[in-house]
Design a protein around this nucleic acid. Sequence first.
DNA 1: AAGTTGATTATCT
DNA 2: GATAATCAACTTT
Length: 210
Amino acid sequence: MKNNNIELLPLSVEFFDQPTLSLAKSLLGCQLVKLTKEGLTAGYIVETEAYIGPDDRAAHSFNHRRTARTEVMYHRSGLAYTYQMHTHCLFNVVSGGEGKPEAVLIRAIHPSSGIELMQSRRKSQQGVNLTNGPGKFTKAMQITMEDYGHLLTSPPLYIAAGYKPASISIGKRIGIDNSGEAAEYPWRFWITGDKFVSRHQEADRVEIIE
DNA sequence: AAGTTGATTATCT
DNA sequence: GATAATCAACTTT
């Protein structure tokens, strides 16, 4: 068995030029590709969350907190925003365009290429635990702070076309209990029924794609 | 000095 | 499968 990656070509930068909520949905089913010296890893994006600052209390850019850390959120759509959370690195796609600090957090991927390499990076885990969480797939794909600010249209890290999900579930975001009413916004999107989704909560709504 | 989440392991069902 | 306890780093003020 081998992994052929013939079709893993980057999407053009225009893809990222759409409203954040729309982009969060459009990213579902796309592939996230990371190229390293050890080889290529890729996976279908199966879970995303939209963060729409400065009015979104859960966003790092809430209240226009423009700092060294959030700086990249104020720039062009399609850049990578990575941030460190204790031992984990979390990965976001910048959206909203120049001057609007918005982003889409990628929470889970479904491996498509380089699975053996991912497993070697996460020895103790197998099956869905390989990549079913925002800190898990970054480790499996070796996405780090070095990717901060990288435009996602070229190696070593980019978004490629994937497949069109049959059904998208929509619900509340995860892990933002302290964010007031922002915690209720239905800004989490996942591919209905995919095993690699990080948490199985009830959807507020399910959209069937034609 | 305070604020910020997710991964892992263990335990019990 | 679900839940609870525990562990770990960096950014901003």
